[in-house]
Design a protein around this nucleic acid. Structure first.
Length: 855
RNA sequence: GCCGGGGUGGCGAAACUGGUUUACGCGCGGGACUUAAAAUCCCGUGGGGUUAGCGCCCCGUGUGGGUUCGAAUCCCACCCCCGGCACCA
């Protein structure tokens, strides 16, 4: 009588069904129990593999659960569609980035449908749509108006592979994060966003984000890199200018025996005396040629040269030489330092190399160190020496504070906080991005495009390959909005991180052509209640979004401080990859039994890697769905391990998931008549048999743990709880139909199906109908926990001797909290074994155990 | 070097605020069904010792200590793995 589990027969029906229903389309005016769930929108890059699926399957399961809990769920979808990769791919595929991108979007839509992943499709957006990037430009203009966007000359990271500028964040260990080419330094005039203005708030507010993973907050803290210290002005010998330095150790100023400037420092030229000019110029030239990576290697020799000029140490009034060296970076602090070799390892190395004096100013407890001979800078606490009025004081924060007060009184320094965070460079010299809405006029200078003229459209040209807008006169030739004269458009496009820094706001009113978003609705629906995405965005995207939110708040467009209330970062799905020395990366089917190449028999190199075409270790959802169905992929993806962890895809694991679904299918189909009959009958716990009570309790234990675990993203334990309940049902049914309590059985199997549905919605809907309900699963309330069902009649109590389990005891629940009774029973049960031993102490944990401590 | 996370069976992993370690699944072994295989179902499965057998004993959550009647869980020291930052003054 049981029909086979034929997933192919059922899946399409439900795909169509969900698409027709309005479950996933909330009315935003209905704000009671609202929930804004958001996955980080994807870059449409061809086809998604099962690793990409994790994010969407988590989200879909979570939202289906929320719907059954009665939430108004907003879960929209869009595409981060601009950017370099689209352009590079378009070049490779001989097509236009637009064609390529929209084709991919179409593929993504098909894949979501296959997975059974639903969204509010009416809110779908793509950042490359003029209706979207218009507001990107508008945002730029607002930032510009508020002095948060500005232009400056900068030595920028230049990628020779991609022919464009990179943000600091896109340079990983000196290489382009995209194409791995070694980054170079170029001087260009570029647009920046003044994110540093918010450095302190971005740092402080991390403390409020208690529902963010600790490691993400830590990464952001590191990235912002706050350090406290002092800004100190050193007079220059024979000049009116001063040299400013930042130091976190102003207490060591008496030990500052020389100054070091970054080679790019603006004062270098003036400070270099004629007799040193040649050497200095040569040094600057050589250090500029050095790439950033090489320069930032800490183990490099400390090269540098003397400028010929001197500064006056404002504390000691000593004359000290000014050097330049490339271990001092122009981008941090003031680009110049006071060097205190006795208490800074880098300065010490430099001093030794160039025979500069070393004066200790903090002595450890055991005597005064000799500046001539020390080989390690002293960084610990001690007592101030050689420091004028500060001699004898203990070093430490208190003394640092006194030093700074001293500087302030003397007028040569003050407290200062410095950040590692730099302003956000957003200019890109490529085609496929949002044009920056600015016009350069010879007469009027830089003029913003008037808002009513937005969007500045990307020209519809035949794609030019690697060139940018600067090669398209039809685009850049324009008139000045102020004087009407001939002028030139800015030909840079924006970093795509600008596009993604506010898209979560746009979903609220995605097709509004009058304004960027509806402030009133945005304030009602945001912050996003739950944001989910990959850990790779821990810094860039999340920091930029936080910045933009704060900037918009300060411009009164919204009224909250942080965009994402909760954040969950899912781990990567990896897969074994095989490589033959002779034949390169191999597909799994080209690998012979004992990890040898099927062509040449050579032993293979194997590694666990992120799925990628190049390593040929991609698992395609289409294949899994063809063979086992979408529910199996969904189930396995959520069951394979804790979602925040990286994990290896396993073909055997997939089969296990499939086996479980078949068990649920068979169980339900075999007993569907009984379940249908039971649904109409009254459920009466007082009349339960012992076996009924056990099932009833198991059901409610399952409801309890499943509900908690979904909210906590512990989908792996959700699935195992459902497996346990299924096993319990099989067990319960073994004696045969006569003994079955029909309404109980109907309830148990119905609740099982309801709880399985968020994860496996196809089989859920199908079997839900099979047991006699004609309403959609999502129209049903989530099973309700009855705490009374969890109570036990009898409890098992562990008997321990000296903390080791020796026996067990069954007691009526009523007695399980009775310490005296438990002890009595434990002693009685263990009686004989104990006789020779003296019981020194008895510990009773009600409801759990009795521990007899014997001599 | 600094910061964060982690280390539990053959494998992926469970274990609530210290209280029965190893749930659930994979794999493996045995059995049933079958002419056979697949599929399915049932039983077993941390290591070692002991027993004819029921059992019983010892060891066991990276290592070494500690706190406690009792530690995967708390404390100290250390080792290893993953991630972030790092010549940032």
């Amino acid at each position: 009588m049981a029909r086979r589990y034929d997933f192919k027969r059922i899946e399409d029906r439900w795909r169509d069904f969900w698409r027709k229903q309005s479950y996933f389309k909330p009315d935003l005016n209905d704000r009671l129990r609202k929930f804004y769930y958001l996955n980080m929108f994807p870059y449409p890059s061809g086809k998604m593999h099962v690793g990409h699926g994790r994010n969407w399957l988590i989200g879909d399961a979570y939202c289906r659960y929320l719907l059954m809990q009665g939430y108004r769920v907003l879960n929209p979808m869009g595409y981060d569609a601009f950017g370099l990769p689209a352009e590079n791919a378009a070049i490779d595929h001989q097509t236009h980035p637009k064609t390529w991108t929209y084709n991919n979007i179409e593929t993504f839509r098909r894949q979501f449908r296959q997975w059974g992943v639903e969204f509010d499709w009416e809110r779908e957006l793509a950042t490359c749509d003029p209706g979207y990037y218009k507001w990107n430009q508008w945002l730029f203009l607002q930032l510009y108006k508020n002095d948060l966007a500005y232009r400056k000359d900068a030595l920028v990271n230049w990628c020779p592979g991609c022919d464009t500028v990179l943000a600091n964040e896109q340079v990983v260990e000196g290489h382009c994060e995209r194409c791995s080419a070694e980054a170079q330094k170029h001087e260009l005039t570029q647009w920046f966003f003044r994110i540093t203005k918010y450095a302190q708030e971005l740092l402080d507010d991390l403390d409020q984000l208690e529902h963010w993973p600790e490691r993400v907050r830590t990464m952001q803290r590191n990235w912002i890199g706050r350090s406290e210290g002092a800004l100190i002005r050193f007079p220059l010998e024979g000049r009116s200018e001063e040299l400013k330095v930042f130091s976190t150790r102003p207490d060591t100023i008496y030990g500052a025996t020389f100054m070091v400037l970054a080679p790019e420092h603006p004062l270098v030229e003036q400070l270099t005396t004629p007799e040193h000019q040649e050497v200095v110029r040569a040094y600057i030239a050589s250090s500029l040629v050095e790439s950033e990576i090489k320069r930032q290697r800490a183990d490099r020799a400390k090269t540098g040269c003397f400028t010929g000029s001197y500064a006056i140490n404002p504390a000691s009034s000593e004359k000290i030489p000014i050097w330049i060296a490339d271990y001092v970076l122009m981008g941090y602090g003031t680009g110049a330092i006071m060097a205190v070799p006795a208490h800074d390892q880098r300065d010490l190395e430099f001093a030794r190399k160039h025979q500069l004096p070393v004066i200790p100013v903090i002595a450890p407890g055991n005597g005064v160190p000799d500046g001539q001979t020390i080989s390690e800078a002293f960084l610990n606490k001690g007592v101030m020496i050689n420091s004028g009025p500060f001699n004898g004081k203990p070093s430490g924060p208190e003394t640092i504070r006194k030093f700074i007060e001293h500087f302030e009184r003397q007028g040569f320094g003050q407290r200062q906080v410095s950040y590692r965070l730099r302003d956000w460079l957003i200019s890109r010299q490529r085609y496929w991005g949002t044009p920056i809405p600015m016009i350069h006029c010879e007469q009027c200078g830089i003029v913003p495009v008037p808002e009513e003229q937005l969007p500045v459209l990307l020209p519809e040209v035949e794609f030019l390959g690697k060139k940018g807008l600067a090669e398209i006169p039809e685009f850049y030739e324009t008139n000045c909005p102020q004087c009407g004269g001939a002028a030139r458009r800015d030909t840079d496009t924006m970093d795509t991180f600008v596009d993604s820094s506010w898209y979560y706001l746009r979903y609220i009113s995605p097709s509004d052509s009058e304004k960027i978003f509806d402030s009133e609705l945005v304030n009602a629906w945001l912050p996003v209640d739950q944001y989910v995405g990959g850990i790779e965005h821990a810094i860039l995207h999340l920091l930029y979004s936080r910045f933009v939110t704060k900037a918009l708040r300060d411009m009164s467009f919204l009224d909250f401080d942080e965009p994402f209330k909760r954040l969950f970062t899912q781990g990567m799905i990896t897969h074994r990859a095989y490589r033959c020395a002779e034949h390169g990366w191999l597909k799994p089917e080209e690998v012979a039994g004992d990890e040898r190449c099927s062509r040449c028999g050579a032993p293979l190199h194997t590694e666990l890697a992120k799925m990628s075409k190049s390593k040929k270790n991609v698992v395609s959802p289409a294949e899994i769905i063809e063979q086992y169905g979408a529910d199996t992929e969904r189930l396995y993806t959520l069951f394979m391990g804790p979602p925040e962890r990286d994990i290896e895809w396993s073909a055997e694991g997939v089969r296990g998931a499939y086996r479980f679904l078949k068990r649920v299918w068979t169980l339900t189909q075999d007993w569907a008549d009984l379940a249908r009959a039971g649904r109409g009958e009254a459920l009466e716990p007082t009349g339960f048999s012992e076996s009924d009570r056990a099932l009833w309790r198991k059901l409610h234990l399952t409801i309890q743990s499943v509900s908690e675990d979904i909210v906590g993203f512990h989908f792996n334990t959700v699935v195992s709880a459902l497996m346990e309940l299924t096993n319990a049902l099989y067990e319960h049914l073994r004696p045969g139909a006569e003994a079955i309590n029909r309404p109980l059985f109907a309830r148990a199997i119905g609740d099982l199906l309801l709880m399985l549905s968020p994860i496996c919605p196809f089989i859920g809907e199908e079997l839900w109908r099979a047991i006699g309900d004609d309403q959609g699963v999502l129209e049903h309330a989530w099973p309700k926990l009855d705490p009374a069902a969890l109570e036990l009649e009898e409890q098992e109590i562990v008997i321990q001797v000296n903390g080791k389990v020796r026996d067990r005891l069954r007691v009526p629940a009523a007695l399980s909290a009775d310490r005296g009774e438990l002890e009595r029973r434990a002693r009685a049960q263990l009686g004989a074994k104990l006789d020779a031993q003296e019981i020194k102490k008895v510990i009773v944990v009600p409801g759990r155990l009795v521990n007899l401590v014997v001599k």
